[in-house]
Structures are given as C-alpha cells and as structure tokens.
Write a protein that binds this DNA or RNA. Structure first.
Lengths: 150, 150
DNA sequence: TTGAATGCAAAAGATTTGCACCGTC
DNA sequence: GACGGTGCAAATCTTTTGCATTCAA
C-alpha cells in the first residue's frame, strides 16, 4: 500500500519542478489512510511525535499544494470564512469551485436535492440546509493544464 | 417582505426565552436577502454603517444561534477547521450533520455522484472531489425538539 | 551545486469570551 | 424590574508568511 500511494504522488510531483520530500510522503500517506476526516492540525499532531518531526506550517503548505495539484480536495475550498444561509424556504444553489483559478460556478439540481431528501428521510433526518461544493478544474484551466504537461 | 421574514423569525424566537432584538432582526433580513453567500464579516460590514451600528461579536453570536435554532445553516457546520481528503480514486462519503447534537452520519449515493458528474460535464468542468454536507436534525433531536427545546 | 522545501516564530485572519451596560419582555 | 442581549476589547484558535537553513535532484 505504501507502494501505490508513493507512485501516485511521485508521478504527480515529478511532472513539475516539485520535489518528493519526506514530509510530503508522510502527509500523503496519512491523508490516504485517514479518509475524509483529516485536518491540518490532526495530521500535524499525528505525525509530530513520529520519528520525523515536522512543522505545522509544512502541513498547511503541503495540503494546499496537494489541493492545487488536484490530488487532494478540501471542504469549502473557496471560502476562508464560514458562510451562512437562511434555511427557511428559498431555492438554494450549489457550487463548483475551480482549483486552478478560483472561479466559482453556481448550479442547481432539483434531482440532486430530491435524492438528498430521500437519503435523509431514510435515516429519519430532518434537513435544514445543505452545502454541496464540487472542486475541480474549469474548462479554461483544464486546457491550460493539458498544454503545460502533455 | 419584511413582514414574512419577521414572522418567520419571531415565531421561532418566541418559542423560548429568546428575545427579538434589533440586531437579530437586521441580521435575519440580511441573511434572507443575501442568498448563500453571507459570511459573518460580510454581514457585519454591510450593517455597521447603517443607522444601527452593531458589533462583530453580535453577528457571530446571532448566526450561531440561528444555526442552532435551525433557521439558518452554515457551510461545514461541524468542523472548526478545514478538512482534507485524498482525491485519488477512493469512494467518497458525504455527511449529514445534526445541528442539535453534532452527530455526523456518513452516507454515499452513487446516484447523486452521477448527477454531479453530469452537471460538471455539461459545463466542461473536470471534477477532482466534492463535499456534500447536509445539515439538519437527527431522529433523536427531532424528537427532543418536538417535546420542546433541547 | 542550486533552487525548492522546511522549520520556527511572528503575523494575519477568523471566531469566541468576559464583563459592564442596555433594552425587551 | 429582571434577565437576556449587546458592544467592546482581549483572548483563542486557525492559517499564512518571512527568513535562515536544509535537502532532493
């Protein structure tokens, strides 16, 4: 399993002027093993006491890098602050955020909304609101990436 | 329009020992008008120069209150910090977060995933990852609320 | 070798809290 | 009039940045 994980990351890093360092390897493995619940602080705490003490700043920088490379995704990629919405009624829109240029495209899907409701109902969960953030690359950045690395 | 908004909020606040104050009314209206893009800081900046100067702390406290009451929802309700996940392959799970007790229920929906992809494809958007956070009340808290406030 | 990456500590940004005063019920 | 809410400022928590040092390529 370290094998595949390493090849994943090294293949991506090797494509630029980026370097495959020990902290990056450690953080990547941790991320791959941790599922969706990894926070910068959590990773830092988990790794600092190992035999490879590493800095908090490195964890933040590395996670951000991974997100930019597209090998990791973060909750709420676009917003530095928390956002709120009135939950009473009102049609709601979801977001696609470009990891390359930061563009946010809004969209709505009644079908997705209905499926959410179905999932919630199945669990006796009463929905108040939801936030769907799709991260990826917009057409322009997809093209740019294709050109940059053939 | 102020009518309906006010009745929404006063009905909810009246249910406890909570009071309907000017800042709360203002924040609620702003929230209702702003769609999903309202941040605490944004609301503060928008309202501070009106004829009802209000404190930053009040905005934060009020938004938190609204979320607890279920009349507003926030992105990433559960997590104070940003969370990351490895995006390479790996089935991904979504979250339902209870505004009452903080419980997080994970779920996956292939159908929702497919719809996201369809929406993305339609826009030439290349998906890297996504984060779907449904907020609401779990069965236990729904029951508790029915009985009266938690 | 050499520029990229790291670690530390300081800075910046976001949110919470303590406390005296104010306003709704 | 009582008690919850507000505002301010200080405290806390999260994330970013400057800079000298270290290290992968």
């Amino acid at each position: 399993m370290p094998d595949r994980a390493d090849s994943d990351i090294s293949a991506l890093l090797a494509n630029g002027s980026l370097r495959l360092t020990r902290p990056r390897r450690l953080i990547w493995r941790h991320l791959a093993a941790a599922g969706a619940h990894a926070s910068a602080e959590g990773i830092y705490q988990a790794l600092r006491r190992g035999r490879a003490p590493l800095g908090r700043a490195t964890v933040f920088r590395t996670l951000k890098l991974f997100a930019r490379l597209g090998i990791a995704a973060s909750t709420d990629a676009a917003a530095p602050r928390r956002r709120f919405e009135a939950a009473a009624g009102k049609a709601h829109h979801d977001h696609m955020t470009c990891l390359g240029c930061g563009t946010v495209v809004e969209f709505t899907s009644l079908a997705i909304e209905r499926l959410q409701e179905a999932e919630a109902r199945r669990r006796g969960f009463q929905i108040v609101g939801h936030s769907l953030e799709v991260t990826g690359y917009c057409p322009r950045c997809v093209a740019a990436r294709g050109r940059r690395r053939p």
